[in-house]
Structures are given as structure tokens and as C-alpha cells.
């Protein structure tokens, strides 16, 4: 399954919302727990440039196809941030560049792959580290895609405008998934060493998208909001099944494990209004 980079770059565009009636949010505002999740997603999208930095520290950016993809991907994700911040703005939540910067300074961006590079040290010489990056990226994009679809399904009946916007965002994420998964599949298939390292890295270090840039309480809130219960668990297993189909990653259940570790289960609970303090 080839990924057509020329077609992708030419079709790449900022996600649009000018045709959507955002006044609806003033007539029928989103509940607090939804806004809290949206804020988290908005931050994640805006911080894509920090992930881009990680990707660029491997020589893979010299490959024209990857450079082209990264350029478009980074911009599309930036616009997802803009779109979500426009929704938040209608609820009096102002996300601007100075707030984002403050967050980047406060949390310090942790390079999640650093410990992996360190633990393998010189063993990484000569391996296609891009294979690991691509598998990692695929896992992230599958999760993001599922998260947007899930939120759209949860809120669709009460807030169709939000659901439509989320679907548009998810559509772009689907293309990102295709790129990462195609790259990961090809690169992992070529190298046993890359398969071993990718498996180790994902099993040991992977965490939900955003967990390096958000407070643990926020991560737990969002993951619980979207994936607690039997419906959520079904989706999570779907993501894991996708990941496990990549060469060398058979049998991994990293997403399910990461949720279990945060106390998010497949048990259906009564939908409760957001408590004052989120369960840790």
C-alpha cells in the first residue's frame, strides 16, 4: 500500500470551520468536562512542532518524501490547534501564544525517545531509527484519530457543530496514520534490529499522546472521559490491534496497558458530572 506523497501535499490544507455555526456554542455551550478535554487536545496539536523536533534529529529528514510530509503534517496539526482554540474562545477560554509558551517553559519538553537512545547507545549505529519513529508516530496518530471520533460520537447528539469539526480533523489524522503506518511497515520489515528496538521502545516507553506535555491529572481526565467503559475499551483494543499488525510488534497491547495503569477500565460507569478534583 503506497502512500502518494505528491497527492497528499497538494491536497494538504488548513482545516476549515468558517462554514460552521460557532454561535451555536454561545446558545448551547459545551459542558466543562468536554472543554477540559478539548483544551488538552488543543495543547497537543499546538505542540506538534515539539514532536517534529524529535523526528528531525534523525537523518530521515533528508529524505525528500519525509521532509515533504513533515512540512504538511506540522502545519495541519497547527491548524487543528487553531480550530480547537476557536471553539474554546467561544467559551471564554483564551489560548494564545504566550500561554502556550508559558506551558512549554514550565513543563519543559521531555524528549521521550532520549532514554531509548541512551539505553541502546552505540547499538543504534547503523540501524534505521526512523523505523522506530514511524512506529511511534503511527501509534500516536491511531490514538488521536480514535480520540476525535470518540469525542464526536459522545457529543454528536447534543453538539453537532463540534462533532462536524472533530470529524474534519479526524479525516486529516487518517492520512497521517496512513503515512506513518506505511513507513513503519516498510522500514520494520527490512531490519530485525529495528523491529527489536521498536518493540522494546513502545512496550517500555510509550504513553498516551500528550502525556509528556500535560499534568498527570489532565491525562487521566481525558483518557477516562474518552475511553472508560466497554465502548471505549473496544476502541482501545482496535488501536492496539493496528499496532500489533506492524512487523515485530505482534501481541503488544500498549494502549490498553497505559490506560489500565491510570485506572481506566472497561467497566461501564454511570456518567457522573465532573468532580471538583479529578481522580488521580
Amino acid at each position: 500500500m503506497a502512500f502518494d506523497i505528491v497527492k497528499y501535499t497538494r491536497a494538504s490544507d488548513a482545516v476549515g470551520w468558517s462554514d460552521l455555526d460557532f454561535d451555536e456554542f454561545e446558545r448551547n455551550p459545551l459542558p466543562d468536562h468536554v472543554l477540559r478535554s478539548l483544551r488538552y487536545m488543543c495543547d497537543v496539536e499546538y505542540h506538534t512542532v515539539c514532536y517534529l523536533r524529535d523526528m528531525l534529529t534523525t537523518p530521515s529528514h533528508k529524505e525528500p518524501e519525509i521532509a515533504a510530509f513533515m512540512t504538511m503534517w506540522n502545519r495541519e496539526e497547527f491548524w487543528h490547534g487553531e480550530a480547537l482554540s476557536a471553539v474554546l474562545e467561544r467559551h471564554g477560554i483564551h489560548v494564545d501564544y504566550s500561554a502556550l509558551k508559558a506551558k512549554r517553559l514550565k513543563l519543559g519538553f521531555k524528549d521521550r525517545l532520549d532514554p531509548i537512545k541512551q539505553s541502546f547507545g552505540s547499538n543504534l549505529i547503523g540501524i534505521d531509527f526512523a523505523a522506530v519513529h514511524m512506529a511511534w508516530g503511527a501509534a500516536n496518530e491511531w490514538s488521536a484519530n480514535a480520540a476525535y471520533h470518540r469525542l464526536a460520537a459522545l457529543e454528536g447528539a447534543d453538539h453537532p457543530v463540534l462533532a462536524e469539526l472533530l470529524k474534519r480533523i479526524a479525516q486529516q489524522e487518517t492520512k497521517h496514520v496512513a503515512f506513518y503506518a506505511t513507513q513503519a511497515r516498510e522500514r520494520l520489515a527490512k531490519s530485525k534490529k529495528a523491529r527489536v528496538i521498536a518493540r522494546f521502545a513502545l512496550r517500555k516507553f510509550w504513553g498516551p499522546v500528550g502525556s509528556t506535555i500535560a499534568e498527570p491529572d489532565e491525562v487521566t481526565h481525558v483518557m477516562g472521559h474518552l475511553f472508560q467503559g466497554s465502548e471505549g475499551r473496544k476502541l482501545v483494543r482496535g488501536i492496539d490491534a493496528h499496532i500489533a499488525r506492524l512487523p515485530g510488534l505482534e501481541g503488544l497491547t500498549i494502549v490498553e496497558n497505559s490506560l489500565e495503569a491510570r485506572g481506566i477500565t472497561g467497566e461501564d460507569r454511570e456518567p457522573t458530572p465532573e468532580p471538583e478534583v479529578a481522580a488521580a
Binding site: 512542532v49 515539539c50 523536533r53 501564544y97 509558551k101
Partner: peptide, 25 residues
Amino acid sequence: TMARMRNLLVTATHKDARVTAFLTT
């Protein structure tokens, strides 16, 4: 540009959201 982005982003420049928003476009 991606090589240049890399050189900028490994420094404190990546923390300045206004500059990174510019660089993205």
C-alpha cells in the same frame, strides 16, 4: 527548510510559540 527547522528547534527557540507558529507557515 527541514534541516533549518531542526537546527532551530533543538534550541530554546522551540519554546517560543509565536515564533514556531511563524516557522510552521
